[in-house]
């Protein structure tokens, strides 16, 4: 029997207070009427109004969204391919280098990734802008996608795909009709991870973005460098809200899906037994 003591309860309470209080305070102060961020002067939504009137923020948000959608989509395709290569392809020339290049970006400090990509773009004379940020984000997030997808592929029963091939499927159809639906949850979470990483990235984007394209994190960083700003509080509240709704919805959906799968399996067991 598990013993849930007072000590456990206290450490959980304090721990979650530590994790959540800073964000809750940020949300509360985003509704503060005073420009002085530390003095409470009554409820107001004026900072949200100012935020939505600020063209620079809206432009940056639009660039960030474009970069995140494009880079995470390409990264999901490339990362899934890389995962299949890693798990299925057996030996081939340069395999060690390949898996090294998949795992290295995960531990590479962002400042080095950013620096090296910038030097490449300057070296080949590519103008810095949305394209270069997309290339940079795709490269590091495809590695995360491939780790997520390959962990799912490892546990996948390959005989299912072989059965499809025996029954006359082309290799591509066998992948599309059998493998892809089974690894789909991992592919989707890989995409979400890539999307979040791209939305979140400041360092690599700062190196690879030119004057023509500013992303939201770059804009946030330059405005908070000198101190707290009420507009950024409002923006943070919106971002925290979106993430909270997204994560909670995703977990409810996956909970329901696993419940249904359980029921299906039980029904199947009854039918065959």
């Amino acid at each position: 029997m598990r013993r849930f003591s007072w000590f456990n309860a206290t450490s959980l309470t304090l721990g979650f207070a530590f994790l959540y209080l800073p964000m809750i305070l940020l949300i509360v102060y985003s509704f503060n009427a005073s420009k002085l961020v530390t003095v409470w002067a009554g409820f107001s939504t004026q900072w949200y109004g100012e935020l939505f009137r600020d063209e620079a923020f809206l432009d940056a948000a639009w660039v960030t969204l474009q970069v995140a959608v494009i880079s995470s989509t390409i990264a999901t395709v490339l990362g899934t391919m890389a995962a299949i290569v890693l798990v299925r392809s057996g030996r081939f020339v340069g395999r060690t280098l390949f898996s090294g290049m998949i795992y290295a970006p995960l531990v590479m400090p962002e400042v080095i990734t950013g620096l090296s990509l910038l030097l490449l773009f300057i070296g080949i004379g590519l103008d810095r802008g949305v394209l270069t940020i997309v290339l940079a984000h795709t490269t590091f997030s495809m590695c995360y996608v491939s780790v997520v997808v390959s962990s799912r592929l490892v546990s996948f029963d390959q005989s299912l795909e072989e059965a499809a091939l025996d029954l006359g499927c082309s290799p591509f159809d066998a992948f599309r009709l059998v493998t892809l639906p089974i690894i789909a949850p991992a592919v989707i979470s890989g995409w979400l991870l890539a999307f979040t990483l791209s939305l979140d990235d400041l360092v690599i984007a700062s190196f690879t973005a030119g004057p023509s394209a500013t992303t939201l994190p770059i804009k946030i960083f330059s405005s908070v460098r000198l101190g707290v700003s009420p507009e950024i509080n409002a923006l943070s509240t919106i971002m925290i809200g979106i993430v909270a709704v997204g994560v909670i919805t995703a977990s409810l959906i996956s909970k329901r899906a696993s419940l249904r799968q359980q029921q299906d399996e039980q029904a199947a067991a009854r039918a065959t037994g």
Binding site: P22, T196, D200, F221, V224, V228, V243, A244
Partner: peptide, 27 residues
């Protein structure tokens, strides 16, 4: 879920949230 949730929230914002807490006139 409560432990994972902050991980999905912007790193930059989580660092920034401490600026208002720790400053001299901070909370």
């Amino acid at each position: 879920l409560l432990v994972i949730l902050p991980f999905w929230t912007s790193f930059l914002i989580r660092v920034y949230s401490w600026m208002g807490i720790l400053s001299t006139e901070g909370i």
